[in-house]
């Protein structure tokens, strides 16, 4: 059991990071903190992919006669794309928060909710 936990230690850390992100996203009412949670959540997925590609004792994937065992480069390449997507999402989120701040003069979710309720009446 202990061996199983230690053998997959990277995945345990990744799950921890992922849950921190998801929990922040759900529990905070401040929109900026929500976005921070979202970014942490996405980062955990990036870590997950990168650690998938790691081969124990493997080297960087270069063509050389001396090395036969190397890590899988594909997940890292995929994550370059995912990082770009993540940056775009966060940037768009921040832009929306700025617009929300201008329109509502607050970035607290419950305050915005009360203002919307008032509009409704």
């Amino acid at each position: 059991m202990i061996e199983y936990i230690l053998g997959h230690i990277n995945y345990w850390f990744i799950i921890a990071v992922m849950m921190v992100g998801l929990y922040t996203l759900i529990s905070r009412t401040n929109l900026i903190k929500k976005l921070a949670g979202l970014a942490i959540f996405q980062t955990a997925v990036i870590l997950f992919y990168v650690s998938l590609g790691k081969v124990t004792g493997g080297t960087v994937p270069i063509v050389d006669e001396a090395y036969t065992l190397y890590s899988n480069p594909l997940p890292q390449v995929l994550m370059l794309t995912a990082i770009v997507v993540g940056v775009a999402t966060t940037a768009l989120g921040f832009a929306l928060v700025i617009r929300i701040k201008e329109a509502y003069n607050t970035i607290e979710e419950d305050a915005i909710f009360t203002l919307d309720q008032k509009d409704h009446e």
Partner: peptide, 10 residues
């Protein structure tokens, strides 16, 4: 529309 877009984004 802004808050709707934000919650859709999340």
């Amino acid at each position: 529309a802004l808050t709707a877009a934000f919650s859709y984004l999340i």
